[in-house]
Design a protein around this nucleic acid. Structure first.
Lengths: 208, 208
DNA sequence: CGATGATTCAAACGTTCGTTTGAATCATCT
DNA sequence: AGATGATTCAAACGAACGTTTGAATCATCG
């Protein structure tokens, strides 16, 4: 996944794994089924942990809305757990999951919605309760922005890293990154609503 | 670019363009040089427009710091100009530029830093002046988050779109999306600093 | 017009890919 | 030990890729 789905050959995988080339087709059927299993194995526990985290928060809140930071942390904290796996598996797993969203391969486009469905529904509910004045459309877009930032950050594909004037110190510490990410996202979610959009030449019928 | 660099064959490109397969190698030398030219042709004007926009703002400000929203708009507005090109070129160009950051192909990793260098430097300067109390490290990360959100949004690879409960109305209108994006990013940039990170078991020498 | 250089074209080259095959090897059980 | 089913392996297959080639076509100009 450091090179994307199509550019990663089964020959490379099997060689690195120390197994025979034909093993993939014997055990998984085809390359597509292999990557599907990889994602289910990585994404399944991750999203399950997110939902479990949210369950615990909501149980503790006893019907009261959760705080924005709490909700975001329920999404982010399980990622940190993955990142702590022994090198380089942790880092690469993050890249895998982060790139999944922008991976053009058609295969992934079928896997991801199924894997993320419950997570998105649950977090949208929680955020709707935490931000009762936010229009639904606006919230959905802000969730979209939030997922984008998170997925992009996980890829580690740092646009600024390669530029000389922007040298960082603690680039590798996932915990530090996430600690910076949460306030950023929370403020974004809480941002004042954008200026009233003018539906040009469309008469009336504007949402309250 | 709807399918990524490696998955896009020269045969597909030349067939769609109505030219001979060998034309690519004749005129560009190789596939890599072709994509390089595509990016320079798309990214060059876009980033030039961003810098020009910033120039104009700074000239008008006469030495006073710019507003956060102004700075963000200087990054975002030129994107809208691209999106307005006739269908489907506008949409696809955005996907191309958005995916560039997460594209695993090694080739792009050499092109992008050169193309974005000046933009990043200039905007970091402007943001530093607009947010004088923000530590340098923090600002760099927030710029990172900002670029991530923008690039992810441009890909149109909507993680939420495919989920039934999250149907949107105005998904295609790039202007509306950007109008939502700016307050989100501005609030993120202005967010209160994250809690003091505890450098565990490392004695003293903490930045002011 | 006819020569010259640039461009286009169909065909082929050498690689690499995912997958298949059939024999060899291993594990398990009577 | 010997039979049986699961797994491994080296080898090959057909397809698709980027690139090269050499002839055909085009444009330009003395």
């Amino acid at each position: 996944m450091q090179q994307g789905y199509v550019a990663t050959s089964l020959r490379g995988i099997t060689a690195k794994a120390g197994v025979n080339l034909a093993a993939v087709n014997y055990h998984f059927g085809c390359k597509e089924a292999l990557i599907r299993e990889v994602f289910e194995r990585r994404l399944g526990p991750l999203n399950a942990a997110r939902i479990a985290h949210l369950d615990k928060l909501e149980a503790a809140a006893r019907g009261r809305p959760l705080g924005i930071e709490q909700i975001i942390e329920a999404i982010v904290a399980p990622v940190l757990h993955v990142s702590k796996e022994p090198r380089p598996r942790g880092t690469i797993s993050l890249q895998l999951l982060g790139r999944a969203f922008s991976e053009p391969a058609e295969t992934l486009r079928e896997i991801l919605p199924a894997q993320y469905r419950e997570v998105v529904i649950r977090f949208k509910q929680a955020l709707t309760r935490a931000l009762p004045d936010m229009p639904d459309q606006e919230l959905i877009w802000r969730m979209h922005f939030m997922f984008g930032t998170l997925s992009y950050t996980m890829t580690g594909n740092d646009a600024l890293k390669l530029i000389a004037t922007c040298n960082r110190e603690d680039g590798d510490d996932a915990v530090a990154i996430m600690r910076r990410l949460i306030p950023f996202l929370a403020a974004g979610l809480r941002a004042p609503l954008p200026a009233l959009q003018i539906k040009r030449s469309l008469p009336g019928r504007r949402a309250a």
